[in-house]
Design a binder for these strands. Sequence first.
RNA 1: GGAGGGGUGCCGGAGUGGUUAAUCGGAGCAGUCUGUAAAAUUGCCGCCCGGAAGGGCUACGUAGGUUCGAAUCCUACCCCCUCCA
Length: 411
Amino acid sequence: MTNCNRKTDIYQLTAIFERGVAEIINETELKELMNSGRTLNLKQGFDPSAPDIHLGHVVGLRKLRQFQELGHKVILIVGDWTARIGDPSGQSATRPMLSRDEIQVNAQTYLEQFFKVVDKDKTEIRWQSEWFDKFNLDRIIGLTNKFTIAQLLAREDFHKRYASGNPISLTEMLYPLLQAYDSVVIQADVEFGGVDQKFNCLLGRELQKIMGQPPQQLFLVPLLVGTDGSQKMSKSLSNYIGIEESPQEMYGKTMSIPDTLIINYFELATNVPNEEIFQTKEQLNNSSVNPMEIKKRLAREIVTQFHSKESANEAEEHFIKVFQKRESPQEIPKYFFSSRHIGDEVYQIDIAPVLVKEGIVRSNGELKRLLAHNAIELNGSKISSTIINARHGSVLRIGKRNFVRIATKVD
RNA sequence: GGAGGGGUGCCGGAGUGGUUAAUCGGAGCAGUCUGUAAAAUUGCCGCCCGGAAGGGCUACGUAGGUUCGAAUCCUACCCCCUCCA
């Protein structure tokens, strides 16, 4: 190994262990493993019931990527069996069973997004069904008798639910066991996950020991707080930034995070070097720069990562134009409205049917509420009725962010 | 097998015969302010008709029943929780 490479290694190691880490079990052992020169099996599981990846997931995926760059191999487990159980960390216990086809489709979608961050060439994909399809009662008993109820109840989520009298199904108890068994099958060296996965991952470690394997190391990343600024990013709370979203959406959602989260996002979701982040922190602390400007930088970084620099710049222009200067955006979707020509290129139009039918507003009632709140503009001026006089090409703005260009259609 | 408690809107949680589309909190949406930040403040928050006043429909686990009238009473069923065995 040349000196040059060594330096890179040290630099990378620092990045790996000092940023975007919640907890490592056991750090010393992990470092020894990494020094052993062996290609490590990095385990990452995913549940094909929720195929969309958002920035919260990216925190962990970026870690995987960093490890890959050191030459290690990711083994992605498609949890086609655990998906049927549903991760108990959600409140609702039972989920509908997914069909084979649905799982296939979800897995496909997931993979496309997954490889936007993780290196495809250094990834192996394994399906739980490879081993669990063959499981019989004998094996299930063999697995379950290795653990006690008390052990499983130690999991915070189970514990809380039990204490507050909420149901826990036996099947759910199986979830951590299956996940643990995956580690045994693939002989995982390190399992990656959010801190909320700690219990499940630890169980894998436990089971490996019982089965005579060296226990896997745990690399737990922090949970990214969502755009609402209070809860962890998740699709069901709709406080997420999906990596498949348009540059404009991504940019806008980033701008909507609370200022207090800016540094956190820089650290967890971007490659901006530590020194720069440190400077940024200073600027925020002594108020020498408007936090908005810093957030714009963050938004550009994020959009660039999943789209391109150009898209990021365009998204920023759009943002400034539409939200800061309150002008109409460049591109506005056009809809045809039944119109009655009342002379001089002016048409009388009832906008309600189209807006409701196209789902731009939820219902007629909703539309009336918006009108009552002065939330609808025609070419920049508020309107108070769904019956309007407009020209072909006039622009409607509904709420903050919905724009509609009117195309007239005389019946 | 026995005893008791409970199932309400996106979530939590009131409500025990009419004044209840259902108190309150959270979430959400919109207005003002503004940096799609925070804070503040106002309004909305089942669907349909109506400019409005108002009217109609659907809804409190499911299906029936009593009643002029039921989320509230009765019957059966389904589901959940706790304790005893």
